[in-house]
């Protein structure tokens, strides 16, 4: 889940228009860029799609950290393909956001100056090769859980970009699990890396779904607008129920002594992550928060001359074309 804690905007539009809009949503219509929409709907979506796009872009960094050290040519090629997909996801999502009237450059500036966020998970470091497995297995696994229902979200461009993204994400999750299998069945050192990766990524993965719905004041409006399709707790439970048997299959231990199957609810009881850590990460105090934004800021600053030159050259070509006509 790459969008967390999205504050939904109160809206002060004409009640009649609002009611008609809600009726369209309830009837399962898709809202398209030129359609009337409440200001709050537009603002909330920009925030949500923007955060999702930023997460794809910042998410390149923890994986890019291992591309140059991938242990075989095939693993290097797979990881390159995956990170390339993520940059592509960022591109579709920025395009979806642009249909709401905000440019990619504006969104980038908001990321860099802290007005917009990216998913808390990418503020954590990738320390061993097993982390490439854990990111695919757990992080992409959690993302899929949120994104599959978002294919039915009410905003057309967002729903369509999710369809493309989901296809690629399931390949990412499979390759992550494949790395974990190799590691968990490998040498003692590899097993140790695999368990260590699970230990470090388990709770941050649970945080990806955001705090409990009981504490989330914004969920209700977003659910009515079909911008948010499921509750945070519901998705988190689904994720745990899916992941525990996979960990058992790998011979790895979930770092939660309280974890137990609850026959009555047909799911696992599990420990909540440390939510104070989550709020610290959101405030920019994650283990890699400073490095992540620093890296994006540097890419933006160092790349300014390239972007300017491309525009200047395009303008010259256009002028020459006009002169020739």
């Amino acid at each position: 889940m790459y969008a967390q804690m999205i504050k939904s905007e109160a809206t002060q539009d004409d009640p009649e228009k609002l009611a008609a809009f809600q009726a369209r949503i309830d009837a399962g219509d898709k809202i398209e860029p030129k359609d009337w929409m409440p200001a709050g709907y537009r603002k909330t979506l920009i925030r949500q799609i923007g955060q999702h796009a930023h997460s794809e872009i910042v998410g390149q960094l923890p994986e890019g950290n291992w591309i140059t050290r991938a242990p075989t040519l095939e693993r290097k090629a797979i990881l390159l393909a995956k990170v390339q997909d993520e940059a592509g996801h960022g591109l579709y999502l920025y395009c979806a956001a642009e249909t709401l009237g905000v440019s990619r450059d504006e969104l980038t500036e908001m990321l860099l100056d802290g007005r917009m966020k990216y998913s808390s998970i990418f503020a954590y470091p990738t320390l061993t090769w097993a982390d490439m497995g854990a990111v695919g297995w757990l992080v992409d696994g959690a993302a899929i859980m949120n994104q599959v229902p978002l294919q039915r979200t009410s905003y057309g461009p967002y729903a369509r970009s999710m369809v493309r993204i989901c296809k690629e994400e399931s390949f990412h999750q499979r390759q992550g699990f494949d790395i974990m299998m190799k590691m968990a069945n490998g040498t003692e050192a590899q097993k140790r890396m695999a368990q260590d990766a699970l230990n470090r990524f388990w709770y941050p993965s649970l945080m990806m779904f955001g705090p409990s719905d009981a504490e989330s004041v914004h969920s209700e409006q977003s659910m009515r607008w079909k911008i948010k399709m499921n509750g945070n707790d519901e998705l988190r439970q689904k994720f745990v129920d899916q992941t525990v048997p996979q960990a058992e299959y790998l011979g790895l231990t979930i770092p939660d002594e309280t974890l137990v199957w609850n026959e009555e609810k047909g799911g696992y009881d599990f420990a909540q992550p440390d939510w104070s850590e989550f709020f610290d990460v959101l405030k920019g105090n994650g283990p890699c928060s400073v490095e992540r934004i620093e890296a994006r800021q540097k890419a933006w600053d160092d790349g300014a001359w390239v972007r300017e030159a491309r525009l200047a050259h395009a303008a010259k070509k256009q002028a020459a074309k006009v002169a020739a006509e």
């Binding site: 960094l61 040519l73 090629a77 390159l80 990170v83 920025y94 890296a295 390239v306």
Partner: peptide, 25 residues
Amino acid sequence: SEWCGHAPALEEDIALANMALDLIG
């Protein structure tokens, strides 16, 4: 592949990764 995540624009990032991928293949 050292450029990954650090290129001047998203399109350049994708193109550099794509070339790297072809070359590793």
